[in-house]
Every structure is written in C-alpha cells, then in structure tokens.
Amino acid sequence: MDKRNAKRLADANKAGDTVQALTANRLSDGIVVYLDGQGGWTEDMAKARFAEDDETLQQMQGIADKAVADRLVVEVYPIGVMIEDEGPVALSVRERIRAAHKTTLTKDWYDVPL
C-alpha cells in the first residue's frame, strides 16, 4: 500500500460514529467503484457494503484482495462514511468528489464541510 493510501486508512480508522467502505478503481477503465454486499463492485456508493467493525472490514479486504488478483480493481483502500437520512456520505471532501463521479461541485461547493 502506498503512503497516501496508508494515511487514508489511518484517517478512516480514526473516525468515530462512522462506518467504512472499501473503494478502488476498476482496472479496465479506472472508474471509481465500491465493494458491494454480493462481493461485486458498484459505482454507486449507496449500494456499497459498510463495515461497522474491524472484523467485517478484514473480511471485506479479503474479498478485495481476490478482486485485485483477478484483475478487476486496483488501488483498494477503506474510507470513512457517515450514514445519514438521505444515504451514505463520505467523510472527506476528496471521497465526496470521487463518489460524485464528476468534477467541481459548483452548485454547492460552499456547503461541502470544509
């Protein structure tokens, strides 16, 4: 794991009252994906599997390792997620931008927690 992703892991683990998802980029096209409940990969973070404890996260990591070996995804790392009424929201601005699959949250960029 490279240094940046190791830091992301550490940050994700620090967050309290949150759950964790595993994110990656699809090998064939680089698009952002999340591990889902069926062991597949989804572009929609709302359909991701969320770990509430380390044991679950470790189990998910095992599935992800196999997906890396099977050349489905690259650059897997965990992210902190807050489950809100309207759905899961990534904790960091970076991950919110990735989850949006688009650039420049122009309409509400002031509203992203800064």
């Binding site: 980029n25 096209d29 680089g30 698009i31 650059e75 970076r94 931008i97 990735r98 699959h101 650039t103």
Partner: peptide
C-alpha cells in the same frame, strides 16, 4: 505502473 507512466498514463482521482 512504471510502463504506463512512461507513456503518460496516470491513475487519478476519478479515472485514468
């Protein structure tokens, strides 16, 4: 990775 980088291909935030 080093082979794709030598051809200008990065993996960025959203995609390649």
């Amino acid at each position: 990775k080093p082979l794709r980088l030598r051809n200008g291909l990065y993996l960025q935030l959203h995609a390649y």
